[in-house]
Write a protein that binds this DNA or RNA. Sequence first.
DNA 1: TGAAGTTGTCTATTATCATAGACAACTTCG
DNA 2: CGAAGTTGTCTATGATAATAGACAACTTCA
Lengths: 242, 242
Amino acid sequence: MSMQDTASSGVALWRLVADGIERGIADGRFAAGDKLPGEMEIAETYRVNRHTVRRALAALAERGLVRAERGSGTYVEAQKLAYPLRSRTRFSEIVGAGGREPRGQLIEATDDVATRELARELGLKAGAPLVRIEAIRLADRTPICVSTTWLSADLFPGAGAVFAATRSMTKLLEHYGVRDYRRGATRITAGIVDATDAARLDLPLGRPILVVDATDHDLEGKPLMTKHSRFAAERVEFLVES
Amino acid sequence: MSMQDTASSGVALWRLVADGIERGIADGRFAAGDKLPGEMEIAETYRVNRHTVRRALAALAERGLVRAERGSGTYVEAQKLAYPLRSRTRFSEIVGAGGREPRGQLIEATDDVATRELARELGLKAGAPLVRIEAIRLADRTPICVSTTWLSADLFPGAGAVFAATRSMTKLLEHYGVRDYRRGATRITAGIVDATDAARLDLPLGRPILVVDATDHDLEGKPLMTKHSRFAAERVEFLVES
DNA sequence: TGAAGTTGTCTATTATCATAGACAACTTCG
DNA sequence: CGAAGTTGTCTATGATAATAGACAACTTCA
């Protein structure tokens, strides 16, 4: 289609192509890491010149949605989730603010006992009974992080079942009457993904991860839960406000 | 603003201006018949060249939303409501299909007696008691027609109060157990608006009106109501399917 | 190594977009 | 009538948009 064929709409052709591809990425037709069809193939499907396709891809590349590799193809970039680190941190709100659908998925919930470290974080005695919740959090269909959460089994009996039903830590706490909570000091390190987390995060082995340890408190400062999270480094970007 | 100043968005400037003006019409900032600001003034508010404004106005004029009058100004066209005449005619559905909000407004409901003509239409005897409902129908804020409806006072006791509450003939009939109804023969003539209807339709004196007489029947063919409607000719266009 | 397929870059052409200025044609109002 | 204000039309210029073709540079895979 040339612009001469039809009454001009005031919207550039390359923009229509770019929007079409972006829609394909947003609805999962092209997943992160996928190779897009070749420029010639895209040009044929949209009935436009290859240069028009290149204009569209350039616009998407500038926004970081795709990345072209000469001789190989154009790939969907895993768009990094901007993850502000504040005292009030809610995964669902952060993901939702980016226009994506937050999801939580329970891997397993088991009973555990507090090590000295966990006991210190949670204000309990070593050996105290705990609930350990292993969960994945996703934005749309993309796994963002795996997290291990420990809660006092005495304070939150049956927490595993509640999380399985609600798929949200915030709602879990609400279930036990905790209206609000704040994050204490957050420790961030980096590492290499292990085989277990690699499978859970749908990551190739050897990829870097961000490791975050944090303990959440209620508004009086009483520890509620302590968390050990592993984020796929290529899918997230922590923002610390100055 | 020139296209060179900013990163190109793929949307033509004239399109942004046209969309802005159309939004102004849609949300009532510019009502039907209103004079738009001068081309120079629009150009200043959008920070574009006058020719760009003219391109936008031309696009709107082609769609029939505005009409330019040389030497005077550019005016918002009263978009004529497409009113298909079928056996199943529902004002609210017709208006809703055009993306506008249908409204009904009771002027008065009085008792009346059947003339010979009304009696014939409704299958009653001359002098039979009737309810006469005078109502205005609007699309968004624009009056479309004034109609006088007669129903048998025996079959529909208290019809005036019911219409005042429901503001819809269809719902009025539902209230009396009539699930569905059809329109019989429809007679269309034209005339000049009188002073009373001019005020009700918010029309200047001397404007043409379309006069429609029709009788609605239930599915067995029994007459339900007969109607005498006066449509503002400049606001409606009847469509008869071939 | 070589062929096939991919993206990157170059030149060239035509139409559209947006700007600018000038003036004509027309309406409105004092 | 005449001035002011409005839309209509003309020419002109430069930047974008979209097309087309050719070839280079690179990757992949047999």
